[in-house]
Amino acid sequence: MNILIVYTYPNHKSLNYAFLQKVLTGSNENANIKNVQLLDLYEENFDPVLVFNEQKRRRDMHTDPRLEKYRNQLTWADKIVFIYPIWWGRPPAMLMGYIDQMFSSNFAYRDKKGLFPEGLLKGKSVVCISTMKGPANYPLLWLHNAHKVLMKRALFGFVGIKKVKFFEFGSMEGSKGNQLKKLEKVYHYFKRLKE
C-alpha cells in the first residue's frame, strides 16, 4: 500500500504535528504499507490561490505543469491521509485551495451524461484526521455534520472515493481533551492498517 499524507498546519510544535508523527510511526511499523510520501503544504509553500484568465483556463487545470508533481502523488497513492484543523467548521483555506486545484475535471472526475460525473479516483481510500477547539459533537449537533458531508459526499464521493475514515477530535485545546489517548488511537490505527 502506498500512502500520501497531506499535512496542513503551519506550526511544527503543535498537536496536529504530533498526529502527523503518530501516522508516520504507525505506518513505518506496518508491513502492509510499502511507501509513504509526505506533502506539507505550508513547508511546500503551496499556492492555494486559483487564477483564471485568458491564458489560464479552469478547463485546462488538469494539465497545468505547475501541478504535475501533486497529480503524480495522488495517482501513486492507494490511501490519502489528510491532517488538518477545523477552523470555522471547515478545513483551512490552504487545504481547500489544494483541493480546488487538484480535484479538477479530467483528472479527478469526468463529466458525462446524467446527474453525476464519472469519478476517476476510484479504488483509492481516504483518512481525515482533524482537530478542533470546540467539543466533539459540535459539528454534528450545531452544523448538521457539515464537515463530514463536505469531505465525504461533496468531494470524495464526487471523484469516486467511497471509503473514507474520519478521526474528528474535539476539545483539543483543553486539559480534558485526552490528547495522548487520541494520539495513541491514531498510531494503532496505522500500525494495524491492512487496506
Rank of each mutant, 00 (worst) to 15 (best):
L4R: 05
Y7M: 14
Y9M: 12
S14L: 11
Y17W: 03
L20K: 02
K22S: 08
L24D: 04
S27N: 08
N28E: 03
I33G: 10
K34I: 10
V36P: 03
L39P: 11
L41D: 05
Y42R: 10
Y42L: 10
N45P: 02
D47L: 02
D47T: 02
V49D: 09
N53C: 05
N53Q: 01
E54A: 08
Q55A: 09
Q55V: 04
R57W: 00
K69A: 11
Q73C: 11
W76I: 05
W76F: 02
D78P: 12
V81K: 13
I83P: 03
P85F: 00
W87Q: 07
A93V: 11
M96V: 06
M96D: 07
M96R: 06
Y98I: 02
I99Q: 00
D100S: 14
M102V: 06
S104T: 14
S104A: 15
N106I: 06
F107Y: 09
A108T: 05
G114R: 10
L120K: 07
G123P: 10
S125M: 02
V126N: 10
V127N: 09
I129H: 02
I129Y: 01
S130N: 09
S130P: 08
T131P: 11
N137S: 12
Y138Q: 14
L141H: 13
L141Q: 15
N145Q: 08
A146S: 14
V159G: 08
V159Y: 05
I161Q: 05
K163G: 10
F166T: 14
F169R: 12
S171A: 14
M172S: 12
E173L: 01
G174S: 14
K181H: 04
L183T: 06
K185F: 01
Y189N: 06
K191P: 03
K191W: 00
K194G: 15
